[in-house]
């Protein structure tokens, strides 16, 4: 009896939270399969009757969404990879080496994160323009580093600090160089952290709107979030297509999370030391 009441106390708020979080996605998924007429009915119809693929046909064959999808993929993967490479070295340095100004530098890394996006758009535009990187993949990839690198460095620093120093000492005695220690010992042990950072970075760049809007103005370079907005014209919004495109855009993220979530919870560190 006690137990059941406790379960109820816990599960009710959780159910509520899940409902609030998931409802928009469900609505989006359901709406993507509705014919235009059923989108506007009052009271709303919960399920499409009959379900239709016409919205997906519009999105996949009559719009630029596939192209935008590829753009988004290139830019997000590129930026995430670059962020990981820089963050691994920076975070390892912050976590393991004692140097003058370390804590100041680590604090400074976050300041970039605190600046409102709007304040950096104009300076960035000027710099990118000067370098000829407006409307290029490289331009957006580099710009997105500003977005993802600081938090990535901070997160990974924490993970690296969690590795017992004695493990690295042991590896050094065994004959590993500093880089050897990083790649053979530390990196495999922070793989949950690497996955977390990669996910964070990928999602952040995949969804980013303002920078993409400012620095990718040509049709060939636009990304998915911008593409979504294209279905809204001056007089009309094709909600069915917007929902279908949103569905397409959400799919990779959902898939990645499904595949990766098990790795999040891995207890790789246990057994290293006395534990």
């Amino acid at each position: 009896m006690q137990d059941r009441r406790r379960t109820l106390v816990i599960s009710l708020p959780v159910a509520l939270l899940v409902l609030v979080a998931v409802f928009p996605f469900l609505w989006m998924a359901v709406s993507a399969f509705k014919p235009l007429a059923q989108l506007y009915t009052i009271p709303p119809r919960w399920l499409p009757d009959p379900p239709t693929l016409v919205n997906f046909k519009t999105v996949l064959f009559e719009s630029n969404i596939p192209r935008y999808f590829v753009n988004s993929l290139i830019i997000s993967i590129g930026s995430t990879s670059l962020a990981l490479i820089f963050a691994i070295f920076a975070a390892y340095g912050f976590a393991r080496f004692d140097f003058r100004g370390r804590s100041a530098a680590l604090a400074f890394v976050l300041i970039g994160q605190l600046l409102p996006t709007a304040t950096v758009i104009v300076p960035l535009y000027i710099v990118l323009n000067y370098l000829g990187l407006i409307n290029t993949y490289l331009g957006l990839i580099l710009v997105y580093l500003i977005l993802t690198l600081p938090l990535s460095v901070w997160m990974l620093t924490g993970y690296f600090r969690g590795i017992p120093k004695e493990l690295e000492d042991a590896a050094i005695i065994d004959g590993a160089s500093h880089l050897g220690v990083l790649f053979r010992i530390s990196l495999p042990l922070v793989s949950p952290g690497i996955i977390a950072v990669a996910l964070y970075s990928f999602v952040a760049t995949w969804n980013e709107f303002v920078f993409a809007l400012s620095f990718a103005t040509e049709k060939e370079m636009k990304t998915l979030p911008i593409g979504l907005a294209e279905f809204s014209t001056e007089f009309d919004t094709d909600w069915g297509a917007v929902m279908a495109a949103s569905f397409v855009m959400t799919l990779p993220i959902a898939l990645i999370f499904l595949v990766m979530q098990r790795m999040f919870v891995s207890g790789l560190m246990s057994g290293a030391t006395k534990g």
Binding site: E166, D169, A170, I173, I185, L268, S270, G271
Partner: peptide, 14 residues
């Protein structure tokens, strides 16, 4: 040409 045994064993967990 030395080998060391640590308090926490320091075995590579992976």
């Amino acid at each position: 040409d030395i080998a060391m045994v640590f308090q926490s064993y320091a075995l590579y967990p992976h």
